[in-house]
Amino acid sequence: MSENLNKLTGFGVSIWLDDISRDRLKSGNLAALMRDQRVTGVTSNPTIFAGALSKGEAYRTQLHDLAVRKVSVDEAVRAITTFDIRWAADVLRPVYDATGGVDGRVSIEVDPRLAKDTAATIAEARALWWLVDRPNLFIKIPATLEGLPAITAAIAEGISVNVTLIFSLERYRGVMEAWLTGLEQAQAKGIPLAGIESVASFFVSRVDSEIDARLDKIGTPEALELKGKAAVANARLAYAAFEEVVNSPRWQALRAAGARPQRPLWASTGTKNPDYPDTLYVDELVTAGTVNTMPEKTLNAVADHGKISGDTIRPFYENAWNAMAALKEAGIDYDDVVRVLEDEGVDKFAVSWQELINTVQAELGKA
């Protein structure tokens, strides 16, 4: 087992795999990653499922059976994706049991086409929670403005939630408010708080991609010097916001009632710029009580040559504030950046979902 991965988990970071496929499950690869690479959770998204369905024969039998039954394409998509999620949840169940429900988690996303529809998102969250029927499930709800009340409603019903597509610090504070309110509503209903888990998925690499492109357009030496600094600074300040909340009397009261914190999760941690170290968004975002969900390529890179040296978040808040101030001075409109990233994130997942539907529809037509 990698010394780097041992160090990472030793500093309190949970390692989750940002990928799922039936081939990975059938081959025992996920179980091997749990054993050899310290993987303790799995995240999925529409892009991952679209990729899995587009190659290999692992889904052939189920697709044939669904076609023979003449199910709708939407029903077929949910049958296929929830089958994989249940399987992964069962593989991860020993970790869930060993950690008291903190890890051993697998996430499935509501239909991204519903991201701007609060009522439909709530209904979809309930349906997926019932359909998968595993205690170590997370329902992924996007952190759109319309998603915030859906997060509250789901948590208030005892549904564990992975809040996804968080880019801005302001929106992250809104996510934490939605989570706290959901816990308070659950408590009022008599639902045990200890059984409700949540993570908040703060996206990392896409922030650098968007801001670096803007810095290139500005083109001054001062602007170019700031490339590659925004994403880590943004994530570090998100953790500072998290610390403010968990030190509040409001949270302490919920904690005393059995609630557990909504852990920050670093998502989109594979570097997209080849000029940057391929372990950048792992090495620079280490602190206790967080999750880093990695593509397998990034996981292997960290295992091989990651630079895990201790807490790289909490000692660097001032550096992060300075970096964000310098970006503003250089002409970067942070509010516009995060708005663009959220809109693009929702659109990309909706496109991937449509690709998934098209792939399933084509396969159903072959039977």
Rank of each mutant, 00 (worst) to 15 (best):
A153C: 04
L180N: 02
K217T: 15
T271G: 05
L148Y: 03
G365Y: 10
S44Y: 12
G12S: 08
A88H: 09
L165F: 10
A127M: 10
E57Y: 03
Y59W: 14
E57C: 01
D18V: 01
I151M: 06
N29I: 04
S2Y: 06
T298L: 00
V232Y: 05
G28I: 13
T40Q: 09
F138V: 11
L148C: 05
R214S: 03
E318S: 14
L169Y: 00
N234C: 04
K366M: 12
N6E: 15
E3M: 12
N292K: 00
G345S: 04
P277A: 15
S168Q: 00
T9E: 15
A178Q: 01
S2C: 08
N273L: 09
K227I: 13
G100E: 07
I191M: 01
E329S: 09
T312C: 05
S14D: 14
W130K: 13
G345W: 08
G270A: 07
I332R: 01
Y334F: 12
G219R: 08
G56T: 06
V340Q: 13
L180M: 08
D97L: 06
N319A: 14
R236Q: 14
K328Q: 15
I313D: 12
W321Q: 14
P192K: 00
N358C: 01
F242W: 13
V102S: 06
A115Q: 05
V77H: 00
W353H: 14
A241G: 01
R314P: 14
I357N: 04
G306P: 12
A240P: 07
I48T: 11
K70D: 14
S201D: 11
S27V: 02
D18H: 00
V351A: 11
A50R: 05
E318D: 15
S248A: 11
M34P: 13
T279A: 09
L8Q: 13
V77W: 00
G306D: 11
N162Q: 06
G101N: 07
R24H: 09
R171K: 13
T359K: 14
T47A: 12
V95D: 02
A367D: 06
V106Q: 01
G158E: 08
E170D: 12
E75L: 00
I139F: 00
E57D: 13
F49C: 09
F11I: 13
A115P: 01
V302L: 00
E225V: 08
I141H: 07
T99Y: 03
G182E: 09
L193N: 06
M294K: 00
T81D: 04
M324W: 10
A115F: 08
S72A: 04
N300E: 14
L169P: 00
E109V: 07
A330H: 04
E3R: 13
V291K: 00
I48D: 13
F83G: 07
A52Y: 02
R113T: 12
A115G: 03
L356Q: 15
A235I: 07
S14C: 10
P277D: 15
A326Q: 09
G345C: 06
T47Y: 07
D283S: 09
D23A: 13
